[in-house]
Design a binder for these strands. Structure first.
Lengths: 343, 343
DNA sequence: CTGAAAGCGCTTACAG
DNA sequence: CTGAAAGCGCTTACAG
């Protein structure tokens, strides 16, 4: 087959000796509304199909000012937590006629700035963003420019935006209270070296719970960007240097993986030698021996809220809707890894 | 701050009393090449920055016919295998000035058709596609329309496209040979009900290896779209009904997860009661007790080949490069789950 | 019921 | 060294 160029609306119009107006109306399903004769409509539709017409959305969006695309930035799409959220959001958005373009920030400030710039350049209609520390100015600018925007997983208390996040403080409290109830005495918290609100709230929840029970803090921070084996090694050392620790609470699911590797390599038994609770669920935690207790995020609920709030704002046009700032309560999913000495 | 509209190139030109031509040249870094005075360039750059100018890529792409976007369709971005590939491809593409828009086909024909249509409508420059069965016609059309395209993970033998895939036949052979070497007698293969080349090659590799060793086939097919607990149940039943099976080879990583759940719930010990090998690695398999032997795909190499071949084709313009059809050799990563009776 | 024409925001060949 | 103008492929207010 010779490589002929696909026709555009004007090509079809010329070929069929009618106006582009009619072609456009017909192709957009407005034939009836515009009272175009059935035969004409049929002829155009057939021609378009036979010649492989595909809408040029670049041109369409440029003209209409609407791209029907939502930009979604998560921390890391390879993390099952974010992957699931993204999947649910996409499903929901597709039903409403929106496409989702997603990408990962890698918790990197420059990359996030770049991604937001790309989205703005491509004229996406709305944004769902897991923000990284340091980009307050960008978000602020977007708000001032009246971008349709909702933050997710974390937020900037100083900026007036919509957001949906977990009540992380409460999650940590539930985890620590449970460990103490089970008789664990010296509970460590493993987190990353980061100022993000969600990690900060988890840390505060831990500290506050320990303070209530008058227990000593054991806090270990590792660097987000370090490779897994380096983090594992650091956690090994941390546990060896603090033999009195009898339970560990991991601040994120990937820290949990590195931590389990460390615990395994030290030959410690869970929960006999050391109790374990982790933030965010994973297949791995469910199937691990023993199964790992987790602070679970209600993923369906969160993604539903996220997309619905954004869509409402998209529908509202230039009118400004009241802000929606939601903190969702987590659920402690108790498994064997945290059943303690009292048992 | 009042919500003033962001300026376009013509706005800047008008405001500064110069021509859009000059503004365009300056903003695109061609000031020097076009010998525009330094002062003018500086003035324009400053104005653009102060007023938050952002390129409208819709307009730019429409005019230049180039979007600098690559569309990537994988089976499921939540599967760590695809997530890792996507991440590596993205990194590589970004360095060359391309953005990646990715999405999941969910192994669904209609969804894949829709996604390809969206990509074509948005005028992406190139495509990396994990095809699902049944879309031969779409791929064929794309080839005829001279789309820059590379298939991944699976391919259509009848269509002349570039592709990078694993030598799945060889992977199955390695797995089965290893199990037999370890003394396992009755080896089952768990796969999905699908005509895709990769699953077909895995099945053929399994059958061929068993035939060589004159062993009986135990093949169980489950449905890709069934929920995990249904698949788990089916596998449970399959194993209960075929007590002579002493080793299982899972055709994909998610089947491995469901299978381990089934095995655990039956109280079978690995590898004493049943040996296990799985296609594709996971954190879970590394950390599971016992660690699970896997047929590993060389992810870095595959993603590098994929993006490089596509970029070469993108650079070649309308010239047609020779096809590249690569089958990459997998690596058997032996862990404890398959150390057999001879031990 | 149908069409001519302007315009979305860019780029670029051409002219001076 | 700088600018006027056409055109990428669409949509839509307006006219008939």
């Amino acid at each position: 087959m010779i490589n002929k160029k696909r026709p555009g609306i004007t090509d079809i119009a010329k070929e069929l000796n009618i106006s582009p107006t009619s072609v456009s109306f017909i192709l957009n399903g407005k034939a009836e509304e515009k009272r175009i004769t059935k035969e004409l409509a049929k002829k155009v539709l057939k021609y378009a199909k036979d010649h492989g017409y595909v809408t040029n959305y670049l041109a369409k969006s440029l003209r209409t000012g609407k791209s029907n695309v939502i930009g979604l930035i998560v921390e890391n799409i390879a993390n099952p937590f974010f992957a699931q959220i993204a999947g649910l959001i996409e499903e929901n958005a597709n039903q409403k006629g929106y496409k989702i373009f997603y990408c990962s920030s890698g918790n990197d400030e420059d990359k996030t700035r770049e991604l937001i710039k790309v989205f703005r350049e491509r004229q996406v209609d709305g944004y769902i963003i897991t923000p990284v520390a340091g980009i307050e100015d960008v978000i602020e600018t977007m708000v001032n420019d009246n971008c349709k925007l909702i933050l997710f997983d974390r937020y900037f208390p100083s900026i007036k935006t919509n957001y949906v996040a977990l009540d992380n403080f409460n999650g940590s409290q539930q985890a620590v209270d449970h460990l103490i109830e089970q008789g664990f005495k010296n509970i460590a918290f493993i987190t990353i070296d980061s100022e993000q609100t969600q990690m900060d709230a988890r840390l505060k929840g831990y500290k506050d719970a320990l303070a209530r029970h008058k227990r000593k803090n054991y806090i270990k921070k590792v660097s987000y960007n370090d490779p897994a084996d380096k983090i594992t090694k650091e956690l090994r050392t941390f546990l060896k240097d603090n033999k009195e620790i009898d339970a560990v609470f991991f601040g994120t699911n990937y820290l949990g993986i590195d931590g389990l590797t460390a615990i395994k390599s030290l030959g410690l038994r869970i929960p006999e030698d050391i109790g374990v609770v982790c933030f965010d669920d994973l297949e791995l935690f469910r199937l691990y021996t023993p199964a790992i207790t987790v602070v679970d995020q209600p993923i369906e609920k969160m993604s539903e809220k996220l997309i619905n709030i954004l869509l409402e704002n998209l529908d509202s046009g230039s009118e400004n809707l009241p802000l929606q700032q939601l903190l969702i309560k987590p659920h402690l999913n108790i498994r064997n890894s945290s059943l303690g000495l009292l048992k």
